[in-house]
Design a protein around this nucleic acid. Structure first.
Lengths: 355, 355
DNA sequence: GAAATCAACGTTAGCGCTAACGTTGGCGTT
DNA sequence: AACGCCAACGTTAGCGCTAACGTTGATTTC
């Protein structure tokens, strides 16, 4: 009989989580009006909007994001791939971006690739399956496939921390080659002639390689070769110590200054020199990179290059947001770096003793 | 005329991204069969499955995760809230979990709360809107609202790094109070009687407070009070230096040993002591926490408590996965810690010189 | 050899929302 | 008074997939 369906109102199985329908019924409007009210788009009178919002709050209604994402054909997720999380640089960049995305209502899906291109490639592919509002990659060195996939799917993409003329979409970063050259020029002016560089295995950190290239270019002017040591481990205090020990052991051609991949490594190098009784900066110049927090309290602050990581993060985030909202934005933003002359290099030029 | 619709086949607007429908048409089966084949569930012959998979690959078809999430009433996202990312402990825990979730096809939505309960609360609420497969929180100290929301929404929840009898759902962690007591007992056995503790502001790190409580409980047996210094900054090398300087300045009641919130702080303390000409361990005992990487290469390794962070991460991840798949699992797992006697505390008991 | 069984599929009905378009009634215009 | 216009709603048709329940034909059972 027809009665049955009336006796058992099919509409409301005691739903645990309220749906938009429930709010609509409670307020006596259509679900479309609720949708409009919730999203804050126009087409609802102020009175009704307030009423709907009150009802939603009373029911504890919150839009199901999966449904929103499907209906809107894109999610409010932002995918972000970093090489590693245990690194002050990326932690700072992330921190700079977080607030901006948070306030705009986006959630971050984070992955760390361990500096592995394959992993990044696989992750980008999976990320696209979420139809994210945007994707953020670190650096500008990505496989052709990654570039194609992101461009093809038309997802706003930000490359951060490094930069180039032809980014996938937009980029905000430091000119690493120039930063390296800046260090080299500075060291040459101070009279250093036997430079060394301590980094990690080639390919593990493309930005560091660019800085090395800049360093080499600068020193080439005085005909100086840059000795290069690459650690197989992370760019840490420990690795800095180990590689420095090796460099100090080269008695025939011991360098007169060492540039490190970052401040942590440089601090390890500084400690090693002091432990071995080598005076810094008189017997050895030490240069770090990034201007990390640790440098502010070291008894002997490192000569380093300060990178504006928080700024880069927030700027990148705002740019990507603008891009997501369809605004025309700069494709390439180069943020400035600054050389900080610490106490681990000479104060002024000196004549290097012949090797 | 009716012809129109036939002349313009409405089925295929030159879709950029292929849908399940496209694969179905290409293979000549229903979309349901494609769905089954893609997900690897039974109900498809091996031949047809292979054929479908080949077609999907050829078209570059990948399921839209938003649609999957909506249809399945839950997503393959795992929300994870950490107090901070710039911290080896949480980076390690995250690292331990990552692989497991990665292989199982889950993506991580990460947030860092900056040790702010309000932020965590807001994030949990927003996270639930994604109907995530699971949620991971750090520690066991959460607001009542967070507990209710997660329990009410029936989302598998893992609390990690700390533990208690009544977790929201399941927990995997260290017994911090016991670890603190272990340190205290050890120090007392070595003859130390004027202990100090260096941490951060109360409430910022509940785990550290529990360790302090354990330390106090142990030392109470010998009637010793624990001097407490709290930094307003992060628990870093720098903060360790600063607070140690203050403690060393207390000439009337200078402590004979200092326990730090973590190894980084302890290293800062060690450096400070050496800088001030205070012999370690003879003039001062130094104890860290966690057994971080840095300790492996320090010339004078710290006495510390080693926490199995990677293990905790992978164990937690596997447990949560099992929970997600409906298995009955332990609600509470306490992972063991180990005291590592370094060279920053006495090797055996000594009679403390009277203050 | 008829009924029962079971892989291997297909059909139907949504998941919970939004885009796009349709409707209504009040107000100004000439 | 007839018309146009425009807020302020409602209706319709999906977004792309899966759960649950058919259907079918070949194989098994006694």
């Amino acid at each position: 009989m027809v009665q049955e369906s009336e006796q058992t109102p099919a509409k409301a199985p005691p739903a645990a989580t309220p749906r938009i329908q429930d709010v609509a019924e409670l307020t006596g409007v259509s679900i479309m009006t609720v949708s409009r009210a919730m999203r804050g788009v126009e087409g609802v009178s102020a009175t009704k909007r307030a009423e709907i919002l009150r009802a939603a709050k009373r029911l504890g209604y919150r839009p199901n994001r999966n449904a929103v994402s499907l209906a809107a054909s894109h999610s409010t997720l932002i995918g972000i791939s970093l090489p590693t999380l245990f690194n002050e640089v990326f932690a700072d960049i992330l921190d700079g971006m977080r607030r901006t995305f948070d306030m705009a209502g986006f959630d971050l899906v984070i992955d760390n690739s361990d500096y592995d291109g394959q992993r990044e490639e696989a992750w980008v592919e999976r990320m696209i399956d979420w139809r994210p509002a945007g994707v953020i990659l670190s650096g500008v060195d990505h496989s052709q496939r990654v570039r194609e996939q992101l461009r093809g799917s038309n997802i706003p993409t930000l490359e951060i921390w490094d930069q180039q003329d032809d980014p996938i979409d937009i980029c905000v970063g430091v000119n690493h080659e120039a930063a390296g050259a800046m260090i080299g020029t500075h060291l040459m002016a101070l009279g250093y002639r036997r430079p060394a560089f301590v980094g990690v295995e080639a390919g593990r950190d493309p930005r560091a390689e660019k800085r090395l290239a800049g360093l080499q270019r600068a020193f080439a002017e005085s005909g100086s070769q840059v000795m290069v040591r690459r650690s197989e481990k992370h760019a840490s205090f420990e690795a800095g110590m180990n590689e420095t020990i090796v460099l100090l052991g080269a008695t025939d051609q011991r360098p007169d200054c060492i540039c490190y991949l970052n401040d942590h490594m440089a601090f390890g190098g500084l400690s090693t020199c002091e432990k071995f009784g080598i005076a810094v900066p008189d017997g050895m110049g030490i240069v770090g990179f990034n201007g990390l927090g640790i440098n502010a309290v070291l008894p002997k602050p490192l000569t380093t290059v300060v990178t504006p990581r928080l700024l880069m993060g927030s700027m990148g985030a705002r740019l990507l947001l603008a891009r997501i909202h369809g605004a025309k934005v700069e494709r390439r933003v180069v943020v400035p770096t600054e050389l900080f002359p610490g106490k681990t290099t000479q104060l002024q030029g000196f004549i290097a003793a012949a090797g």
